[in-house]
């Protein structure tokens, strides 16, 4: 055929202005009226000249093993977090008849089953608290916590297309999964208010502890979610082990029974579970009981530790997500 340009490795740098064939540069469609008519200039980029800053906006290099969490960067992506939470909620209840009622139904039905079997039949001592409210307080928090951990742990795998095609701090994804759980928690709380009114529990100063306790639950769920999500990208084992572990964890937490059911010399074992302090604290706050400050302090400590470990571990694995997912 035509001449074979074998050795055509001519290094022509970008700024040598070889004018392109003008005939080929005709606009394909009529330009919209608001764009300036560029007919006169062939090098139109000189018209809207972009002032190149001295410092690069983005530097791309292979990073060190340990990268701290960039909070400012996370904050600048808060709108994406909002949209992902919104998407998760929308999608979850699309094409359902009951919609958000499902958020209430699950803990409600479980509570009724527990009330019958563990309450009426097994007569588990609940320190004088009526069965429905005892179980519902525990289940409400547990449903939120376990749901957030499970959804969070699977969140990266469920968003593969985002991870391989767009840049954003990956922490947003498990964060959004936990956020969506928080919305369900808020919906299911409505029933709790109904129960509290029905059983005539008075409003006490303990209510002031509700917000810190919910924040603590959220942070603990977040810590586990981000750590498991990252691990799940590399080892799909997480996906299979998690449902079983979560179920075991439920029976080890004071949801069906109060931790006082344990013989006194073994109670500390229960308190090693960071959820014990949180769930019993939640009950104490709502039902006007004594707080177990030591257990709460311990839960806070463990949560902080896990959160720090999880976020660093996530950051370390994050840069490989798009390649190995």
């Amino acid at each position: 055929m035509s001449k074979h340009r074998r050795k055509a490795n001519m290094k022509i740098t970008g700024n040598q202005s070889a004018s392109p064939a003008p005939a080929l540069r005709q606009p394909v469609a009529p330009t919209s009226p608001d764009t300036p008519e560029p007919a006169a200039q062939t090098t139109h980029h000189l018209v809207h000249h972009y002032e190149v800053p001295d410092k690069p906006v983005v530097v791309i290099e292979s990073s060190k093993a340990w990268v701290p969490v960039n909070l400012a960067n996370l904050w600048s992506y808060r709108e994406l977090l909002y949209f992902l939470v919104w998407r998760d909620i929308k999608v979850r209840y699309k094409q359902t008849m009951l919609g958000a009622l499902w958020a209430i139904l699950q803990p409600l039905v479980t509570m009724m089953i527990f009330t019958y079997f563990f309450g009426k039949l097994a007569r588990i001592p609940t320190e004088g608290v009526p069965y429905p409210i005892f179980f519902y307080t525990g289940l409400l928090l547990w449903t939120y916590f376990s749901g957030a951990v499970v959804m969070g742990a699977n969140s990266l795998l469920g968003n593969t297309n985002l991870i391989t095609k767009v840049y954003f701090p990956r922490l947003i994804i498990p964060g959004a999964a936990v956020g969506a759980g928080l919305i369900d928690f808020a919906i299911a709380s409505v029933l709790l208010i109904g129960l509290l009114l029905y059983y005539r529990f008075p409003v006490t100063w303990g209510y002031l502890m509700l917000l810190p306790l919910i924040v603590l639950t959220t942070l603990l769920a977040l810590a586990l979610a981000i750590w498991l999500a990252a691990l799940n990208v590399r080892f799909r084992d997480v996906r299979y082990a998690l449902p079983f572990l979560i179920q075991a964890w439920m029976f080890l937490s004071p949801i069906i029974y109060p931790s006082t059911l344990m013989p006194a010399q073994w109670r500390w074992v229960m308190i090693l579970n960071p959820l014990t302090g949180i769930i019993e604290g939640f009950r104490a706050a709502l039902l006007g009981k004594e707080f177990h400050w030591l257990a709460l302090g311990y839960s806070t400590f463990v949560t902080a530790l896990l959160l720090v470990y999880a976020s660093y571990s996530f950051r370390r694995m994050e840069k490989h997500f798009a390649e190995i997912i």
Binding site: Y50, V52, P53, K55, P56, V57, V58, V59, I60, E61, S62, S63, I163, T164, K165, V166, Y167, K319, H320, A322, E323
Partner: peptide, 24 residues
């Protein structure tokens, strides 16, 4: 993908002096 910060390079460096949007 590397210029969009989706994957990290093994070595080398790139600098971009402006906001980037990618449509991959």
């Amino acid at each position: 993908s590397i210029l969009s910060r989706i994957i990290e390079p093994t070595s080398g460096r790139a600098e971009i002096y402006g906001r980037v949007a990618s449509l991959l």
